[in-house]
Design a binder for these strands. Structure first.
Lengths: 218, 218, 218, 218
DNA sequence: GATGAATGAGTGTTCATTCAT
DNA sequence: TATGAATGAACACTCATTCAT
């Protein structure tokens, strides 16, 4: 016995809103706290094992607050990945925008990758997301869009601008390289968690530099 | 997955059995069918989402048969990964044992990796396992042992024998290289499923050859 | 995150069944107890307010037993109405089959209706069902079939045989009369519960006799 | 429906109101819109399934407005039935007050009943109410009063005045006849919704005329 | 008076696991 | 060894109701 369905909405202040600001602010905070809590819980337990109650409790709220902010479990999950991806883009741009020479860019990129790899939550969430996407093909437009955005991040959009000679490649080449980098990063990230002893910081940086290098060379 | 627990047993024929051979055979078959079914279901749904009933049904049995053969969900899961790892070793040895030159070895290794990457079930199961191991550190000896065996597969044991010059490296170097190869393979495998268009057979083989090459060069 | 769906099955003994009889018997008993409990609870609380837990508890079982026997709440509900309708038919046939004269038939019919009206559970369940059917048009074949069977009970099927001169009417006339009788019975039944003081046994019987009479006169 | 509880209040203008008339008007409008919406939703979904949110939304308001106007779900529900009953009385009086002969009265009454039966919302609400009253005996004075008023509508109060010879009957006879008419009307109303094909306008009018006739004959 | 974020109890349903047969 | 009825804990999600603004 189901029911229609509302849409999860991020509370936004409107100029002509009759509701005072205080309330809005608290609502936004709640939303953020829930997202943060969800990140932690999803990373820790995996999507399927994560409990809404744990998420709510970690945010200092009740289950009801969760459902005021999100349609369902999948809704937050995707919201988190979208969030992460946006953060990824910002980080990337911040790290790369001031570089000029190829050497600088390569080093900045390697550093960027290193930070990505060392963010255990981000790593686990991204893998969880990829497994999820693989197992739920074209489930929904939102999922598909995010899927595409991740695959195309270096071929389309702003990030491409900062990759130096890379930008002269054809679209198909860029996408291929993006995928290769993804593969290298994901593999490193998960195996570093699986077998930490085999991945010293130095070794990881070496590998990342060579991965970054290939983005400019060919 | 709480509750006391018996021990998972592989059906064995008893002397006083009325129809010894038949019974044993059927029991072994049931066991195998269940393992095969479990592989499929775990790969398809993930560990947490997999239902015992689906596994049993896919094997043409009922839940009861499952619990006759395995202690619990985790038990089959690890059994499957152990199985897969054994199969991996066999495949590896079969593929490498007849090679002599470094070139041959490199090519054989690349081919071996290619087969590994293309076995979608194996890929998903191995990732599932690594995520599981990361999330359940030292949960049990059996898990830890398997964890170690996988990390050390090229440094200890038979496989090391067939890797040519690689075998002259120090233990720590071998383990590092093993981890690097794992990372490369895992990353390729999952991203190939996530974004198939970006990984043509040719491209994957190229990448695998260079991965294999590094095992011998340095 | 839903799931396929099993079908509620009434346990049936098969000749070649390997399962001993004892178990089957208990299963059938459980099923019956659940149905009986569900009747009581649905009649008492209404479909929407009825709790699966109450039904299970009243049958001396747990919720799990309920879901072993029925797909969901609606499943039992319809099963009960089907049951009731079958019982109605049996009662009707038992009450009418030995009558010969029109007077006998009329009296037997009035007595039959009286019993129907006085079965408070049956009354509340039938009203609940009609409201449900009205609110969920063509929801499912099973519901529609039952709906039709109830509307056509005197026009098609065995019952028509025992209604004397009534059987010479055209199909459309029979259906109309069936509907008129339903209306009279339902109205009497619910208002007798709503305002018991206004419906003495005598008065109800008088009304029922005149309702029954009209089935033969025109 | 637990919790302490305030009293449902019909919005009234206060002397010190800044924009007295407007505010009062809007408040009254809101109240009416909510009642109308509630009628629709209760009729559509039934009392138990009706959602406050749906009611509020249908009235173009939010849940808060609902609770400003009504104590709880049951409060609106009874308010609606009271409303309906008052409307019923008005309709009845309007339809009957100008009649003089018994024939006129009979025809007017049949017409009145016909309108009642054809108001699907009214029909479903009244049945819902009767089921509710049956299931919650003496729950509260308000419910009991309404219950009684409905049962006694032709025996006590204004309506009795217009029923010609009927008014000479004893109180107990009047109440009995009222109940009989209720039964006939309710039964017709619900079964017409359940099996519309069997109740043409003509047929329904014929039945209603004979029901009305009996109110005067005996 | 109205908003809507938040509460928290409630409940349908699922599913790993047990156990009598 | 295998069955499948039954258990019972777990959980996602709903919704009446409250309350600060």
């Amino acid at each position: 016995m189901p029911r229609p369905a509302k849409h999860a909405t991020i509370p936004v202040a409107f100029a002509n809103s009759t509701t005072p600001v205080k309330k809005q602010e608290r609502a936004i905070q709640t939303h953020e706290h829930l997202i943060m809590a969800a990140r932690k819980v999803f990373a820790r337990d995996g999507f399927a094992q994560a409990r809404i109650e744990d998420i709510a409790a970690l945010a200092g709220k009740t289950r009801g607050a969760f459902y005021t902010n999100f349609r369902d479990k999948e809704d937050v999950f995707i919201a988190i990945i979208e969030d992460d991806f946006n953060r990824y883009k910002k980080d990337f741009l911040r790290n790369l925008c001031r570089t000029t020479s190829v050497e600088e860019k390569r080093e900045a990129l390697a550093q960027h990758f290193y930070k990505v790899i060392c963010d255990e939550q981000r790593v686990l969430l991204m893998l969880e997301f990829k497994m999820y996407a693989i197992r739920h093909p074209q489930k929904k437009k939102r999922l598909a869009d995010l899927h595409h955005a991740i695959c195309a991040r270096f071929s389309e959009g702003e990030m491409s601008q900062y990759l130096g000679e890379f930008k002269h490649k054809t679209g198909i080449e860029k996408r291929r390289e993006t995928a290769r980098v993804s593969a290298a990063i994901d593999g490193l990230a998960i195996n570093r968690l699986f077998d930490p002893e085999s991945f010293s910081e130095e070794r990881v940086m070496t590998l990342l530099r060579s991965i970054a290098a290939e983005l400019f060379d060919c």
